[in-house]
């Protein structure tokens, strides 16, 4: 096997060659334009008025009505509450995922306990289980618990994920050397203090990546919130689908809502795009 070359493998950061042809920049620009166009559209249409938008050809340049249309969104659906709900849901899921997954990841990576490998295998196996196929029972369960239409029913099922556990285990193995833990142990630290004072600081970059990905995924989640929440207590995505399916399909209104719901992830992406890309390229991301 290639074990001996593993450590010395040079990373070909400069790429395989420069001679991909003169077409590569035009090609890339085309791809980026196709990628960005619908996002541009989401922000451009609501900056115009409906009578302009209804014409052919449609407008391609922004106008000055974005804030007027955005204000209409808040009048039409309970969008303020939707935004707050989404922040609460995605924020809680992110925090609990980071905490519980790093704890479990730390245990699986560094602690010795009976049944560890078997339990790890169980964790990994559950990643194959498409949880939303249990939605009918989950729905019944949440009603029985009295949590129907409450945010907790959206938060709890994804409060700690197998993917996060495996991801954090991998990160602990990579980022927390045994020597450091030995040293801490000699200083008299207990397991939890080792986790807190030794492992956690070293895990910050990995936790940043996991946190960002978790937040964005939770923010964008749709099917389960649609089923378990209602129009008075929606997340942003549920509010958007209400908006889009109302009798008055009013493009500037619907897309103004869509734009508002997209702004938070765009901000995160603009600030942390490099980290997110790094996380994906590390192959760390489950689709």
């Amino acid at each position: 096997m290639t074990g001996s070359t593993r450590g010395s493998t040079r990373r070909s950061t400069r790429g395989s060659g420069e001679s991909s042809g003169p077409l590569r920049y035009p090609l890339l620009f085309a791809v980026v334009i196709i990628s960005a166009f619908p996002v541009y559209w989401t922000f451009m249409i609501p900056s115009r008025t409906n009578d302009v938008v209804g014409q052919l050809p449609p407008p391609f340049l922004p106008g000055g009505h974005f804030f007027a249309n955005a204000a209409r969104v808040f009048d039409t659906v309970n969008f303020g509450k939707a935004l707050m709900n989404s922040v609460i849901v995605a924020g809680s899921i992110t925090l609990s995922t980071l905490l519980f997954c790093s704890l479990a990841g730390f245990a699986f990576a560094k602690l010795n306990f009976r049944g560890r490998n078997a339990l790890l295998l169980v964790v990994v196996s559950t990643m194959m289980v498409p949880v939303q196929l249990g939605i009918i029972s989950l729905y019944i369960e949440m009603q029985e618990l009295g949590w129907g239409n409450r945010l907790i029913s959206v938060v709890l099922p994804t409060a700690v994920t197998a993917f996060g556990v495996v991801f954090m285990r991998q990160s602990v193995i990579q980022a927390v050397p045994d020597e450091l833990l030995e040293a801490g142990r000699i200083d008299g630290c207990g397991t939890l203090r080792l986790y807190w004072h030794v492992a956690l600081p070293a895990l910050r970059p990995a936790m940043a990546v996991l946190g960002l990905l978790t937040f964005m995924q939770a923010w964008n989640d749709f099917m389960w919130p649609l089923i378990v929440l209602n129009a008075e207590n929606p997340t942003v995505q549920v509010a958007l689908s209400t908006l889009a399916s109302g009798h008055y399909r009013d493009n500037t209104l619907v897309l103004a809502g869509t734009a508002l719901g997209t702004i938070p992830v765009l901000v995160i992406f603009a600030l942390f795009g490099r980290q997110i890309i790094g996380g994906i390229m590390e192959g760390a991301v489950k689709g």
């Binding site: 922040v87 910050r204 940043a208 946190g211 937040f215 995160i268 600030l271 942390f272």
Partner: peptide
């Protein structure tokens, strides 16, 4: 990274 995390936290 720590700074970024802090920024993210503040933003949220």
């Amino acid at each position: 990274q720590g700074r970024l995390m802090a920024m993210a936290g503040t933003a949220v």
